[in-house]
Amino acid sequence: MNAPFETAKLHDCRDAFVATLEAMGEANRNIVAVCNDSVGSSKLSGFRDKFPDRLINVGIAEQNMVGVGAGLANGGKVPYVCAASPFLTGRALEQIKADVAYSETNVKLVGISSGMAYGELGATHHSIEDFAWIRALPNVPVIAPADRIETAAAVAWAGDHVGGCFLRLSRVGVPDLFPEDHVFELGKANVLREGTDLTIIANGVLSHRAVMAATLLAAQGLSARVLNMATVRPIDAEAIEAAAAETGAILTCEEHTIFGGLGSAVAEVVVDTRPVPMSRLGVPGVFAHTGSANQLLDDFGMSPEAIALSATALVKRKG
């Protein structure tokens, strides 16, 4: 952490995404972007201005968009297919399954404004099922960076990775967690804070809240390990097993339904390897209501204070 979160500057991870993509485009003429009438929300105007013949705007046609991306990949291009995450993953799921996962094409899927970032627009625009939908598919790593630095590193990793992937990016401002030289490693969790009494596992916009919760717990005499689990698939089973063995309890936090996402992925490892008391924080199997993205996280029990309360209750279950 570079500064106390209360005073730290907040960054929109989309800015890191486009800055990295533009730099990659300068170095590699095969880098292209495909979007669904979302040049503004994907912040691709700079890429369009620099490389006008390498931005393909298909209009509001997400299924075609994924197919176009697959065709470009088959032609030797490296397409970053960008759209609001609920429409990319919901409307085009069949194309993602057939044209990207099954066909093993080199398509980089970028879900913009994921989770509950479109808070006031309601359930139709919330993307709280995307982990579950994409995690079920083979051949498509699922990645949710926690800050601008990890976002840039993950975007660069995707460019070198041969094959499809899904990058889940938010528009909600978050503070820096990682040093500027951070290197993203697929399937590798990062320890943001050491601890011995329980482990809190989070990703995306929840990771810095998990660290804040751990600070509150420390003031109460509880030592919480915090893991940033940016890769939901393939999950870092080794880090989860170590957390279970060394801290004896695991709490997950995600901007997603509690069914099929990060919590479920962690629980699958825990039940198969080292069962310990575990709790999952997220949207509890309902459509989220309207409100600002940060307020919705608070409403669903994921303010730093609420995370700390859940952690305290979980530790009591250890016996």
Rank of each mutant, 00 (worst) to 15 (best):
V232C: 06
P284V: 05
S127Q: 13
D160P: 02
G69D: 04
S113G: 07
P304C: 10
Q95I: 09
H161M: 02
V283D: 01
F300N: 15
G173A: 08
R209M: 14
V110K: 00
L121H: 14
T124P: 08
F87N: 06
H126A: 13
A84E: 01
M116Y: 10
R317W: 11
S170C: 06
N203I: 11
T196K: 00
G75A: 09
D130Q: 12
G111M: 01
V191C: 08
V271H: 13
G285P: 12
K9P: 00
L281V: 07
F166L: 15
R280V: 14
E104N: 04
A265Y: 11
K318N: 07
P141D: 01
F47P: 02
R148A: 13
E129I: 12
H125L: 14
E246W: 04
L222Q: 13
S114N: 02
D298K: 11
K9F: 04
I143E: 01
K97G: 01
I258L: 11
A313F: 06
G319T: 12
W157Y: 15
R29Y: 02
L88W: 06
Y102W: 04
L281Q: 14
Y102F: 11
V232P: 00
A117R: 08
Q295S: 05
G173P: 04
G75Q: 10
V162L: 13
L109N: 04
L21Q: 01
C35A: 01
G71I: 04
E129S: 12
A242H: 14
G76Y: 00
A152G: 13
E180C: 10
S85T: 14
I200E: 03
A73K: 00
G67K: 03
I143W: 00
E104L: 08
S127R: 02
V315W: 06
D299M: 07
A210R: 08
E22H: 00
V100T: 14
R193D: 05
V315K: 09
A156H: 15
L216Y: 06
L314Q: 01
A237E: 11
P234Q: 15
L309N: 08
E255I: 05
E238A: 15
E241K: 09
I143M: 11
V266C: 08
V155S: 01
G40E: 15
E185F: 11
F300A: 07
Y118F: 12
T199I: 06
A311H: 06
S127M: 02
S170N: 07
G40R: 12
L109V: 11
G261P: 06
K43N: 06
D181N: 14
A123R: 08
G25K: 07
I134A: 11
T257R: 13
P175W: 08
A237D: 15
A144M: 13
W133Y: 13
A242I: 07
S292P: 01
I250Y: 02
A218D: 15
L121P: 05
E246N: 03
D130Y: 08
R148P: 12
M229K: 11
R233C: 03
E180A: 15
F166T: 04
V174Q: 11
C35D: 06
A230W: 00
R225S: 05
A8T: 08
D298H: 04
F287L: 15
Q63Y: 07
L55E: 07
T151Y: 08
D181S: 03
N57Q: 05
G282D: 15
R193C: 05
K77S: 03
D12S: 05
F5I: 07
D299V: 02
M24L: 14
L10K: 15
